[in-house]
Design a protein around this nucleic acid. Sequence first.
DNA 1: CCCTACAATGAAAGAGCTTTCATTGAAGCG
DNA 2: CGCTTCAATGAAAGCTCTTTCATTGTAGGG
Lengths: 334, 334
Amino acid sequence: MNKRPATTIYDVARTAGVSIATVSRVLNDPQKVNEETRASVFEAIHRLGYVPKAEARARAMQQNRRIGVITPYFTAPSFVQRLRGVASTLRDSNYELVIYTVENMHKFNRYIETLSINHYLDGLIVLSLQFDNSFAERLLEYGLETVLVEYPHQVLSSVEIDDEAGGRMAADYLVQKGHRELAFLGDTVIPEFGIHPITLRLAGYRHRLAELGKPLGNDRVYTVAYDMDATRRLGREILSGPRRPDAIFCATDMQAVALLKVARDLGLRVPGDLAVMGFDDLDVAEYVGLTTVRQHLDESGKIAAELLLSRIANRDRPVQHIQLPLSIVERDSA
Amino acid sequence: MNKRPATTIYDVARTAGVSIATVSRVLNDPQKVNEETRASVFEAIHRLGYVPKAEARARAMQQNRRIGVITPYFTAPSFVQRLRGVASTLRDSNYELVIYTVENMHKFNRYIETLSINHYLDGLIVLSLQFDNSFAERLLEYGLETVLVEYPHQVLSSVEIDDEAGGRMAADYLVQKGHRELAFLGDTVIPEFGIHPITLRLAGYRHRLAELGKPLGNDRVYTVAYDMDATRRLGREILSGPRRPDAIFCATDMQAVALLKVARDLGLRVPGDLAVMGFDDLDVAEYVGLTTVRQHLDESGKIAAELLLSRIANRDRPVQHIQLPLSIVERDSA
DNA sequence: CCCTACAATGAAAGAGCTTTCATTGAAGCG
DNA sequence: CGCTTCAATGAAAGCTCTTTCATTGTAGGG
């Protein structure tokens, strides 16, 4: 049995009349090599049927140039927007973006284990997932650089916002605009992922309202599943009921948008009869003119990615806990 | 402090007090090394949690399979929604999702070339990018299974919609609703990616309108950059001008939403004074109650992924060109 | 005892890549 | 024209292992 030795990068280099370095570059960083050279290298590759050996490649590369993002099954626009931020940073950094979606903690657990062990990511970004200590230990032990978004942790870098402050800002804003009958609309807690910023937003709102002498009664706090239809149904109920609030702070833009629509359907003038305020500043907020508390989602993704890259480039950089500022974006709804 | 990037064979050797050659032998050819030595090497391996690195990576690359998605820099909601579909299919299939964003054809070209050769993806999905024959040849030659979305190609599988038919459907719908002064609003052509469904949507619309005896004059075709602000400005102009149309078909939901907002700001009743119709059925269409031509973006991503997986599982499956149906989703705006 | 045989081991040379660093030639510019 | 800049390239070092080959020590055989 005569084994034909596989073609290597050397064969390609010889055939194309260049050095192996150039061949390697053509494959990994093509913009660094001249158009013509590139063409002729490709031709050689093509003619010899060259396929790089994964094992040798992995060996030579200290890095993989891959960043993973773990996110809850990404159906919520807020995840998408953060992801977009991550992608925009990674795009011009020559890192690949690998996405892992998890539906439950179990799967999350599995990802953490296998990813940390087989060292084939250079860094990890975890979006909006509860993160317990055992995960952190594992990651540290295996040296997988990680940045958490929306869930702080002692020993890992994180990017967060102050949800409570956001609630307070909304309270201040609405009261200052002269509204008297304030309410809150949020979604119900999903226990699965154990993270629930909504609770904090409500707490801040409520607390501040109390300070301003307009305590928020429990009958003014509505909760509903994170679902358009359900939210609209509830909205209709609230808005056509006897004691209609004149301003509602919604825990997320999605709910605010649903409410806005109901209000319009009912012929209410916004913000005259009803002020609606959201939280997040999703793209859609701009489309419909929703006044909202902006948490700059794109930016949070961007910053998380930048943080990660800087730590990867230099392991000595300290762990950081970045608190992103919130601001009120005034549009037409409140 | 557990700052361990990765344990190498050298660490093990040092710990066990032997040379790396011996460690290697213990792993690959154990009977060649003395019983006691072997035991102590194993102990060291255990204590350090050593996993042969290069090998582990290569193995991981071998068995963890990867699907790549190439998309234009994903800022447009329609890409995101398709991506979501892709992710949802891949999620329970043991495939990783790797995302490549391209800003121009040049970079796209690069990706195609290197990805096909590197053998590093098991399949590829291309979203909304013009795809010329040389790409297809390259992919076929290197056996990288590919599915195109929104851009048909002879020899590669694809998932498409009939944009022209969509335009016709809109025309039918609006005319049947009794509107008389019809117009069209679309975004200007971006030559970069060479794909422009908008043109087709307009063509279908115009053609059908002509058939229905209501030819669309050029003065009733508005174009504007794909940008909220610009669209709103133009919208204001159109709607407050002398010959206001009573129905506008927008080439994309984004524009329809912008227009809707302007109409409301101007106090027009929708759909009484003005009917607005979109195209895509983005999430936002539902939020704001936009009547639109649905192309089921999530579904297109899902189907593309399924198609891809089935071809990967069985190379004999035929190439398919799937034409996704369009439908009109009647909401409140028209 | 000396000599061969052989088991156990380490030093060092690959293996097939990537990446750094230095070199070269061609612009750009005052 | 000299001088700086910069893109394109090759030489060589480096990555983590495997394998070859030389070395050592020990056990038998004469």
